[in-house]
Computed example of a mutant assay.
Amino acid sequence: MSAAHPVDAPRRLLLTRSRHARREGVGHAKKAVSRAESIRAFVLIEGEFTEGCSRRL
């Protein structure tokens, strides 16, 4: 097994913090709605979305 590249450590930390922030956000949103309306799965979509956005998925 090879040692991790030193540049990988900051990236792993960033990814870990990002995952934590997403879970925390989803948990906060779930508290605001009923179980029937709760988030059960989500997908991250790259890009910028606004009210006037005409981008189709």
Rank of each mutant, 00 (worst) to 15 (best):
M1T: 07
M1Y: 05
M1A: 08
M1I: 07
M1N: 05
M1K: 01
S2Q: 03
S2C: 01
S2I: 04
A3S: 10
A3Y: 07
A3T: 09
A3D: 08
A4I: 09
A4C: 08
H5K: 09
P6N: 00
P6R: 01
P6L: 01
P6F: 01
V7K: 15
D8C: 10
D8S: 15
D8Y: 12
A9C: 13
P10K: 08
P10E: 08
P10A: 07
P10H: 07
R11A: 12
R12D: 11
L14C: 10
L14T: 10
L14N: 09
L15P: 02
L15Q: 11
T16E: 14
R17L: 15
R17P: 00
R17T: 06
R17Q: 14
S18H: 12
S18W: 14
R19K: 11
R19I: 06
R19W: 01
H20V: 03
H20L: 09
A21P: 00
A21W: 05
R22L: 15
R22P: 03
R22G: 03
R22H: 10
R23C: 13
R23E: 15
R23D: 14
R23A: 12
R23P: 01
R23G: 14
R23H: 15
E24A: 14
G25L: 15
V26I: 15
V26M: 11
V26F: 10
V26E: 07
G27P: 05
G27R: 13
G27W: 08
A29F: 10
A29H: 08
A29R: 11
K30R: 14
K31N: 06
K31C: 06
A32H: 05
A32V: 02
V33G: 01
V33N: 00
V33S: 02
R35G: 03
A36D: 07
A36T: 03
A36K: 06
E37H: 11
E37C: 12
E37G: 04
E37P: 02
S38Q: 13
S38H: 02
I39C: 04
I39T: 06
R40K: 14
A41W: 10
F42G: 04
V43G: 07
V43R: 14
L44C: 14
L44P: 08
L44D: 15
L44Y: 10
L44A: 12
I45C: 10
I45L: 15
E46N: 13
G47H: 03
G47M: 03
G47R: 02
G47F: 01
E48W: 10
E48T: 13
E48F: 11
T50Y: 03
T50Q: 03
E51P: 01
E51K: 04
G52F: 00
G52S: 03
C53V: 02
S54P: 00
R55G: 00
R55W: 04
R55H: 06
R56Q: 05
R56Y: 03
R56L: 09
L57G: 02
L57W: 05
